[in-house]
């Protein structure tokens, strides 16, 4: 995947000839446009790129990318991607899934693909609702959400994609927002740079079935107050109602610290973001920061290095060849106890 051969690729090279069929105003349009825009910068040729998806609105994504693409079955995209990546480690493999596809029917595969740390990117579009089946509550929906399948309100406790991926042992975890183009592209670049499973939650609006799911983050005016932009080595500070605030974590419990203009945040106990922190307890604490009590963290939550599954497997194959020589079928068939009949 030499960078040179991908030079000259531009956004249009990654746009397929298919009509995009999401609802008007869907957050997926913005995600698609930003993925198409960022791809030429990644140094990967489009023929070496595979987008794999499951079922749901988000999973139509591969049809619109002029790369190799595989629209599979509900929830199983990570497993298909595993087979592709294990077979062909040189390919750049991207999984596109949603909160229903990835965390409900496909929770098991998401868990295990993250655990194995294949060098793939998983983009989970979280709109907190089932869109393609017309508006039932999803595993990330807020309790009490009234939908056609929960007329009195959902009684499910939601799962948090960030906590889930951290618990599965993710080596790269990030969150971004559908409408924040620059932030999304930067997050996607970092996800691609990471060697290992890069899990990216993309907060996405469904204008038809869950409009305003992330309204305070999507609205440019309120975004500053409602989001905590993570930068490695920088203190966790944000501004709210015109004043500066920071996040302190005491024995794993986060709290908001009011900061005066001349305060040194670190001296006041504000945590300095360390995405490479070996233990996951810090990242887990970040995952507990929820609206409306806290700003929602966006950016890279965790990034650590660990060998990738497909590399370890390839090493085993090479080791076996080194130890036993390249397998010979004739030798195998005649191995062990054989006898001749004349």
């Amino acid at each position: 995947m030499a960078t040179s051969t991908s030079a000259g690729q531009n956004r249009r090279d990654f746009v397929s000839d298919q009509d995009v069929r999401w609802c008007p105003g869907c957050g997926d349009y913005s995600i698609l446009a930003n993925v198409q825009r960022v791809m030429p910068d990644l140094g990967v040729r489009r023929e070496d790129t595979v987008f794999v998806s499951g079922i749901g609105c988000s999973s139509r994504f591969p049809y619109y990318m002029n790369t190799y693409g595989f629209h599979t079955i509900h929830g199983r995209a990570p497993a298909f991607a595993t087979g592709i990546k294990v077979a062909r480690p040189e390919l750049s493999v991207w999984v596109v899934t949603g909160d229903g596809d990835g965390l409900s029917i496909g929770g098991n595969h998401l868990l295990h693909s993250i655990r194995r740390n294949l060098n793939i990117q998983i983009l989970l579009f979280n709109n907190r609702v089932y869109g393609l089946t017309k508006g039932q509550y999803s595993p990330t929906s807020e309790p009490g959400m009234r939908t056609k399948s929960s007329p009195q309100g959902s009684i499910d406790y939601p799962i948090d994609p960030i906590s889930f991926s951290l618990s599965a042992g993710a080596t790269f975890v990030a969150r971004t927002i559908d409408v924040d183009a620059a932030h999304m592209r930067q997050t996607l670049r970092l996800a691609h740079e990471h060697s290992g499973t890069a899990f990216v939650e993309i907060l996405q609006n469904c204008p038809v079935f869950n409009d305003g799911a992330w309204s305070d983050l999507q609205d440019r005016k309120t975004r500053v107050e409602s989001s905590l932009v993570l930068e490695h080595g920088k203190p966790l500070v944000f501004s709210s109602k015109g004043s500066l605030k920071g996040i302190a974590v005491d024995q794993g419990v986060p709290s908001v610290v009011e900061l005066a203009d001349d305060d040194d945040p670190v001296e006041r106990g504000v945590v300095v973001h360390d995405e490479h922190c070996e233990t996951t307890s810090y990242a887990h604490a970040l995952a507990t920061l929820k609206r409306p009590d806290f700003p929602l963290p966006v950016g890279v939550i965790r990034q650590v290095e660990k060998p990738c599954y497909e590399d370890l497997l390839q090493q085993q194959v090479e080791h076996a060849i080194e130890q036993q020589g390249v397998g010979d079928l004739g030798d195998l068939l005649c191995s062990g106890d054989v006898w001749r009949v004349d």
Binding site: V52, F70, R76, F80, T82, V86, H112, V317, V326, G327
Partner: peptide, 28 residues
């Protein structure tokens, strides 16, 4: 028989086993 270049994948379940298999077929 890894020395034959065979990649064996013990999946998390039966569905993942067949899905990864189809993925590998797609990859050639």
């Amino acid at each position: 028989y890894q020395n034959f270049g065979i990649k064996t994948f013990q999946a998390e379940d039966e569905i993942a086993a067949v899905s990864a298999t189809i993925g590998a077929a797609f990859a050639g």
